[in-house]
Write a protein that binds this DNA or RNA. Structure first.
Length: 136
DNA sequence: GCCAACGTTGGC
DNA sequence: GCCAACGTTGGC
């Protein structure tokens, strides 16, 4: 199983709305690297849900509920969307500065490639984020 | 609101 | 095919 992180601006699409709706079509990705990552997602992969711009923190965990299909919002062919479902909200959000302060997480692509919106996450990194969210 | 990083576009 | 100009993202 692979792990991922997706970014969304909460003003545009928030975790709260995601939970309320129970499912999301992750569409609108118009960056090749991000698209390639989307297309590698397998059903059951776990996904960190990150609020960019406002909050700058990981707020929850989602799961890939449906693998990629052509993005219906794209004018050109070749873009992809996946379906995500919420799994759980983090006990407390894990902020970007917190992540940056952890030596083992310094190499996360989230930090090193800050403009990518669909990012692979190592299993150990994924676990570390969850552990931080559960620490007092 | 500014700016750095970086991807994309288009002229040559 | 190179590279300058431009657009977008996202942290600060």
């Amino acid at each position: 199983m692979n792990h991922w992180l997706v970014k969304t601006e909460p003003d545009v699409y928030s975790w709260e709305r995601f939970v309320k709706e129970g499912r999301a079509m992750w569409d609108g990705v118009r960056n090749y690297q991000a698209r390639n990552n989307l297309m590698k997602m397998k059903k059951g992969d776990k996904v960190l849900f990150y609020h960019s711009n406002v909050g700058k923190e990981v707020v929850g965990v989602a799961v890939v509920a449906g693998e990629h299909y052509p993005d219906p919002t794209a004018k050109e062919p070749g873009w992809a969307a996946v379906d995500l479902k919420p799994v759980k909200e983090l006990q407390r959000p894990v902020g970007l500065d917190r992540i940056r302060s952890v030596p083992g997480l310094k190499d996360m692509l989230l930090l090193r490639h800050s403009r990518l919106s669909v990012i692979p996450v190592a299993a150990a990194e994924f676990r570390a984020i969850l552990r931080i969210s559960e620490a007092a």
